[in-house]
Structures are given as C-alpha cells and as structure tokens.
Amino acid sequence: MKSTDASVRRDSNCVWRVIGDNALIVKIKTADDNSVFTLNKTGTAIWQSMDGGKTEDEIVAHVRASFLCPEGTDIVADVQEFTGRLMSDGLLETKSTPTSKEKKDSSKRGDLR
C-alpha cells in the first residue's frame, strides 16, 4: 500500500474463515493448492480489519493496540509489506479515499460556507 490515505478491503471473491488463531482464505474460482492461504495471529488481525473502512494508519494503530510488539518493530513497514503480499496474491482490492489534504481542504471549504 503506497499511500497512507488509500484503504483496502478483502476481495469479494475470497471466502474466509477464522479457525483458532488463524484466518483461512480461499480465492474462489481457482480453489487449488495455490489459492488457499493461512495467516498467523497478527496477519489474521490485520486481515479482519481490512473491511474497506480503515486506512493504513488506522490498521497500524489497530495492530499497535492489539499486540505487544518488541521495541524497534517497524509496524508501518510490516503492515505495508503484508498488505503488498496480499495484494499481489489477489486477495485485496483498493478503495480510494480522500487524502489528508483533500479532507483538510474540504473542511476549509465547509468553514467558508
């Protein structure tokens, strides 16, 4: 995920289920060995938060609040790398959201009315 203002959501052609601590994701239409994915506990938490309503910053904040991360952990980089892998596997679709600047501008315009 390049921009911190773009939100991502799970691809609608994915069927998923949390089993224990692990999310199991199946990309349908190609349900063979290469289209079945399992995520660890952290990955599962990120996956569950990818509902299209959260920005990358909000997902990072969610991870930071949910897990005890060792000092020095670059959560932003980890989330970006993980998101990139999900994206390249075709498990996510992007959804444009207003950038911070646009939100600010919009807010200013509102002030002028």
Partner: peptide, 12 residues
Amino acid sequence: LEPAQMTAKLIP
C-alpha cells in the same frame, strides 16, 4: 496438523 492447516490442505 493444526485445524487451519488441515483445512487448507484438504480443500483441494
């Protein structure tokens, strides 16, 4: 195998 792993491997 853990249930999630088993489920993933059984799907095919």
